[in-house]
């Protein structure tokens, strides 16, 4: 079963007849789906449907009992380019007393490179500033992460995920515990990125309103109790054009002008 619509786009995630069981209970059985470049996939399911399990398998935290998962065409066990994936965790994982500034959290997105005792290069700091600017949280850079509101924290985590300019952004229930207004501006930001950047999205959510509003009323496919809602961002860009990604620096300016234009 192929979910993507455009053939000119490469496969980003391939899940091939994957099953997962935990303590003799089948959580997922024989799930297959395919995420293509520039898809926005909403993964919806009731509690216990296995959506978090699915996500954890895709990012390599769990191993499927059977079947295979490939990322950017490579089997997950051999996949090395983890800096191409941005990951936004569930908000409630954060300990409010943790001694870390917003800047330190965002810079931790660059962890793949080795450095001595916290030394970052000028380039790293520039990337960090760009990511903070793009999310509109540059004023909070030196605040302790636990002092921020839920919506601000979510922007910081999004900035961390974006600092590497990822090709695939994975969001795990990003708006749990955030008020409605903040949720809306968060989704606005995500939608904009999907339409104007060369980025593929996989989001686990139970916010049906947002999902249906952007991805359509009916799931494009189902596997067991998991529903996949899909929107492919193809119409605004030409596939042959390679230079789809523009730097984070311009993201906020573009979003501002897009808002004014409405």
């Amino acid at each position: 079963m192929s979910i993507g619509t455009a053939d000119c786009h490469r496969d980003v995630i391939t899940v091939d007849s994957v099953s997962f069981s935990y303590q003799q209970k089948n959580v997922l059985s024989n799930v297959s789906f395919n995420v293509k470049e520039r898809d926005f996939i909403g993964l919806i399911g009731t509690n216990g449907a296995g959506k978090t399990t699915m996500l954890r398998m895709i990012v390599g935290l769990l191993k499927p009992t059977s079947g295979e998962i490939r990322i950017f065409g490579e089997p997950i066990s051999q996949f090395k380019e983890w800096n191409r994936i941005g990951y936004v965790p569930q908000k409630n994982a954060l300990n409010p007393l943790f001694p870390a500034t917003v800047k330190e959290v965002v810079l931790s997105g660059l962890v793949g490179k080795r450095k001595w005792f916290g030394a970052h290069s000028r380039e790293d700091y520039n990337k960090c500033d760009d990511a903070l600017m793009a999310m509109g949280v540059e004023d909070l850079a030196d605040k302790r992460i636990g002092q921020l509101s839920g919506g601000q924290q979510q922007r910081v985590f999004l900035a961390r995920a974006l600092i590497n300019n990822p090709s695939l952004l994975i969001l795990d229930e990003p708006t749990v515990g955030i008020d409605h207004e903040t949720q809306e501006s968060f989704f606005h930001m995500i939608k904009h990125m999907h339409q104007h950047h060369n980025m593929t999205f996989l989001m686990v959510s139970h916010d049906m309103e947002m999902i249906k509003g952007y991805l359509g009323e009916q799931p494009a496919s189902t596997a067991g109790k998991l529903n996949f809602y899909i929107r492919h961002s193809h119409e605004t860009q030409d596939c042959v054009e390679q230079n789809l990604a523009h730097s984070l620096k311009h993201l906020r300016a573009q979003m501002a002008s897009a808002k004014e234009g409405k």
Binding site: V59, L61, Y87, P89, F98, S108, R114
Partner: peptide, 23 residues
């Protein structure tokens, strides 16, 4: 610790994000 300070920070702050970063 000096060599792995960033990795140790991320794993302490957010173990899931650390694995997703390939640590």
């Amino acid at each position: 610790v000096g060599r792995h300070l960033h990795g140790l920070f991320l794993i302490t702050f957010d173990e899931e994000a650390a694995s997703v970063s390939g640590l």
